[in-house]
Design a protein around this nucleic acid. Structure first.
Lengths: 257, 257
DNA sequence: TCAAAAGTGTTATAAATACACCCATGC
DNA sequence: GCATGGGTGTATTTATAACACTTTTGA
């Protein structure tokens, strides 16, 4: 796709008409896949610039609904975790038509003006359960892929910063938001869970202590099955006791008194 | 002030020209005054509706700078704590010309249209050191006062919710942001500090344990003076050891392993 | 039998919690 | 003296952290 079709132009003109100008949504879509924390990045049709998914807020729609609609358009999944974690609003926050290869799309002047305007972006993160994660592209983007967060690939604009902040938000929300419901498949092992915590927190955790603490929480139910891995002792499979897990969550801040 | 002056109209028309439409800033300005956590509310000229301070983002200005400029316009103080804590963007988020008494201001149609438009608001909180807190009004507002957060007065629009969320943000930031530098005067007592923590956290704290924990942190320096209060043992005065206090702050999340 | 990773247990230290008791002040 | 809130100490429990040992598997 090297230029806009008539249909694309109509879609964009409609979007511009019904959306709040200069305000965008960006969502960091996470998954935990093969022991890696990953997020979705999309490539602009021309050039080699990668972005995280985004969209606009319709006039008759609240911001979180816009984020949810956007997420659905991108993943075709309803009812995902969706948490707002910050606003990105530097004064030079805009796409560059030349360096970003947007002008090669040969879009109408009005659309180009809209797209290259200064945008304030409200940032969300979401979590997708691994096997159901297919991402659909949009007219602007020709490719979508999962990047490992530990690889810190360079993204366009301030999107690398947004991803980094999203990871911090994950860490802060680990005890208060039901993230495991989305991160973990129906059955999983404690070592897998530990890797998730480690990559979110960015530090290693003692195996014995992690296990002890997790089992004491009371939301891990042993299935009796084991995961046949490789040439080592197979880890035991657990599933989440949803109610106990939800009840274990707390907004409390640990202050030490 | 019952209607707009020529000068006000000029100011507003300039604001509209240079600001991002449908995007606003709101700031909850806190102080700790006479053992109460308070915030600034401003009354619209007509009617009896109270709002928290707010403003707009100029095209050439980043969002946090806009919040800072706004705060300065309202308080005449530079360099205050300013933390973003959320976005408020429901689809019906707008002022009502009739019920809010805005139409009585007899402002030009363009200004009225701007003001009563749907706005997405980015919310900040700030903290002001008690004795320096004078608030200046604006053309829209005839009165400004400090409200006690525990009184939960009803504010216009979603502003009560914004204030409640701001308090939650204070609690979350208590260990990671240097809030005490702004909340406490140069000299203060440990019981005063404890009341601040209690009102922010919304729960009572054991006196002995609070004291022990605070003194162990190493950022409280005894001045040797006491605060002559009333008919009881006078509490000792302390001041903050700024470096030690800053060093004691941490972004770490306590997870238990 | 060996390496590798899982599972379990022990111990030392530190932190959280719940109190009890004394102290200084003004009335 | 006494009520009031401030300052101090202690004991119990719980949590954290470090680490050693055992188990299970496939090659």
């Amino acid at each position: 796709m090297t230029k806009f079709t008539e249909e694309n132009i109509d879609t964009w003109e409609n979007t511009m008409r019904i959306s709040i100008p200069q305000l965008s949504i960006n969502t960091v879509i996470f998954r935990f896949h093969k022991m890696k924390l990953q997020y979705v990045a999309m490539k602009l049709v021309h050039g080699n610039l990668w972005f995280i998914p985004g969209g606009y807020v319709h006039q008759d729609e609240c911001v979180t609904d816009a984020a949810r609609r956007n997420l659905f358009e991108q993943t075709q999944i309803h009812d995902l975790v969706l948490n707002e974690f910050g606003t990105f609003g530097s004064s030079d926050r805009r796409m560059n038509a030349k360096s970003d290869g947007i002008e090669k799309l040969e879009m109408p002047e009005g659309v180009l003006e809209w797209i290259t305007n200064r945008f304030v972006s409200i940032a969300y993160y979401s979590v997708i359960t691994d096997p159901y994660a297919t991402i659909t592209a949009s007219p602007l983007y020709s490719d979508a892929k999962w990047l490992n967060i530990e690889d810190d690939d360079a993204l366009a604009m301030d999107h690398s910063i947004i991803v980094a902040e999203a990871r911090k938000a994950l860490a802060k929300d680990l005890l208060s938001k039901p993230l495991l419901l989305s991160f973990m498949p129906v059955e999983f092992t404690i070592p897998e869970l530990q890797r998730l915590y480690e990559v979110i927190l960015g530090r290693s955790i003692d195996r014995g202590n992690f296990r002890k603490r997790m089992l004491k929480s009371g939301f891990l139910i042993k299935t009796g099955l084991v995961k046949g891995n490789a040439r080592q002792r197979p880890p035991e499979l657990y599933h989440l006791h949803k109610d106990n897990y939800i009840n274990s969550l707390t907004e409390d801040v640990k202050l030490g008194f």
